[in-house]
Simulated scan of single mutants.
Amino acid sequence: MHLQKMIIYGYIKNNILNFVLSHPWAKQEFDIIIQSIKTPLKQLPPPECQNTDIGDIRAYVSFKQHKETALHEGSSTDERFSERAHAEFINSAQDERLHEIIEDIRRILNDRQD
C-alpha cells in the first residue's frame, strides 16, 4: 500500500504541518522521507501554503477507527488539488540505486497525469 493512502488527514497548527497516519509503518516511512518534503516546501511553497510560515513537519499515528473518508466515497466535500509535478526532468544520478529511485518517482508522476 502506498504511503499516500495511509494519510488520514493533515493540518497546520502553530506553524507545524501535521500529518495523521493510519499505520505505524506509514510513520516510519514518513520519518525517512520527511527531509525531502521540508526542503522543497520551504524553497517553493504551494499556493495553498504561501500565507503560512511552516517551521516543521510532524507525523502521528492514529489508532482510532476512522470511517471511510470522503476521498474514498467521492463526496462533494472532498477537497482535491491538481497535480503540479511533472515527470519532465533529467536523471543524472550516478549511483544505480538512486537512479532507479528517481525513475520510480518519474513513473509515479506519469501515472498521476493520466
Rank of each mutant, 00 (worst) to 15 (best):
Y9G: 06
G10Q: 09
G10N: 11
Y11G: 07
I12N: 02
K13G: 04
L17W: 01
F19S: 00
F19T: 01
F19H: 04
V20M: 02
P24M: 03
W25T: 07
K27Q: 09
K27V: 05
K27Y: 03
Q28D: 13
I32Q: 13
I34T: 11
Q35M: 10
T39I: 15
Q43V: 14
L44K: 13
P45T: 08
P45Q: 05
P46A: 06
P46D: 04
C49G: 03
N51E: 10
D53V: 15
D53P: 00
I54V: 09
I57V: 14
Y60F: 13
F63A: 06
K64E: 15
Q65E: 13
K67M: 09
H72L: 14
E73H: 11
E73Q: 15
G74F: 05
S75C: 09
D78A: 14
E79L: 12
R80K: 15
R80M: 13
F81N: 12
R84T: 12
R84K: 08
E88K: 05
N91M: 07
S92R: 03
A93V: 06
Q94W: 03
Q94N: 13
D95A: 13
E96F: 05
R97G: 10
L98T: 15
L98H: 13
H99E: 11
H99V: 00
I105Y: 05
I108G: 03
I108Q: 08
I108W: 00
L109C: 10
N110V: 12
N110Y: 08
Q113W: 02
D114K: 10
